[in-house]
Design a protein around this nucleic acid. Structure first.
Lengths: 209, 209
DNA sequence: GACGATGACTTGACAGTGTCTAGTTTAACT
DNA sequence: AGTTAAACTAGACACTGTCAAGTCATCGTC
């Protein structure tokens, strides 16, 4: 080959922001066709780079997916903060807002949400990922703690109550995504949200005693 | 090639029970290394046939996985019946037994359980799969109906209560499998069962009013 | 300013995959 | 006995992830 392409400034050798470009391509690929049709090579193609380039930034496919999942957890965390800030500032309403953020994140970005819990494709030893995931959990736990304290319930209930609430919202989200059983198809946000709010209303005495 | 192998009865041309052999090989592969390292060709190898043989019985990889998932749902259904038969014959105890069967199935066969909800690898239009999955759900719903009736609660609560209980146990199972968050590692059955029983005890007033 | 060194990226190869097509073997049915 | 259809083999294709080796650009140092 001569030097590069004949024309001038297109496709410089150094991409400059390949890391971000690859993460963006991953997002596009996931949203379009899901994790199963995600391909490292296609990802490189979209970023306009050769198939071997991603290895330099992420090691292998698992590394790229792990980085993307960490980013997704951070987005969830941000959404959670946002919802809680907009909610009525009472403990239970804040908890509900937290759950709603979780649900909306799942239903709004199904493929991204599935990846976040696909332990077989992720490197759970990765510090970024585990930090981001733990942050989401701790946020949730903090909400629950406020609910229990306001209701004067013993601290010993925190673990079980957190497990209960988180299992509930996580189970709902995954069943809605991967099982048609709730008669609430993907995309039917309103029905899903209504169902969640109803369950949270019913569960209230469980947490507030 | 002469006719076949020189020796006599080994590897007859017609396998005789290839369908079952392939399903068994799938089970072995999943249990050993999970869905991600499952391979149609390796599966054929284990069954002692050529790589193209499975297509005749299952069409493609999705078809084989779908058939296996249907079988797994049937196993779950059988386990549920078993647990319920052994339980104390009171509505709530039967409901708890049902949930426990679900949990044990998930924790005892993590890869199989994950596959059952991997909608991207399954053909949900398959009648066997949808029938087997629906059977599990209806079994669950029937349990809940008995609880509500015994407690004299309105029929309108059936939907929400079923959704609640199923989300709870499904969420617990998946979070235990794909997230280390419950500090209850895979294999720590007793802690998981204890946690589930505790949550079901706490939730009792929610369902019995 | 020349110059190593180092990171960013390309290129080609390799083993492996799922699926397709065409061909071969066997059993079953007239 | 001869035909038909099912069960299975064998080879090809396009594609994948990863690896090794090479090329290109930039940056700090003399």
């Amino acid at each position: 080959m001569a030097k590069r392409e004949t024309s001038g400034a297109e496709t410089p050798y150094h991409h400059g922001a390949l890391r971000e470009a690859l993460l963006a391509a991953t997002e596009a690929l996931l949203d379009e066709a899901g994790l199963e049709s995600f391909t490292l090579r296609e990802c490189a193609r979209r970023a306009g780079v050769s198939h071997g380039a991603p290895a330099h930034h992420f090691g292998d496919a698992r590394g790229l997916l792990t980085a993307f999942a960490a980013q997704s957890f951070e987005q969830l965390e941000a959404r959670t903060s946002d919802y809680m800030a907009r909610a009525e500032q009472r403990p239970y309403e804040r908890l509900v807002a937290n759950g709603l953020a979780y649900l909306d994140h799942a239903l709004g970005n199904p493929h991204r949400f599935r990846l976040m819990f696909r332990s077989d494709r992720l490197d759970h030893a990765d510090p970024d990922l585990s930090r981001a995931a733990a942050a989401v959990f701790h946020h949730f736990e903090t909400c629950m703690r406020e609910v229990l304290e306001a209701a004067g319930r013993p601290h010993a209930d925190l673990g079980p109550c957190t497990a209960h609430a988180w299992s509930l919202v996580h189970g709902m989200a995954t069943l809605m995504l991967d099982n048609g059983m709730f008669a609430c198809r993907v995309g039917d946000y309103e029905a899903a949200r209504a169902m969640f709010l109803d369950l949270m209303r019913r569960s209230r005495p469980l947490f507030e005693g």
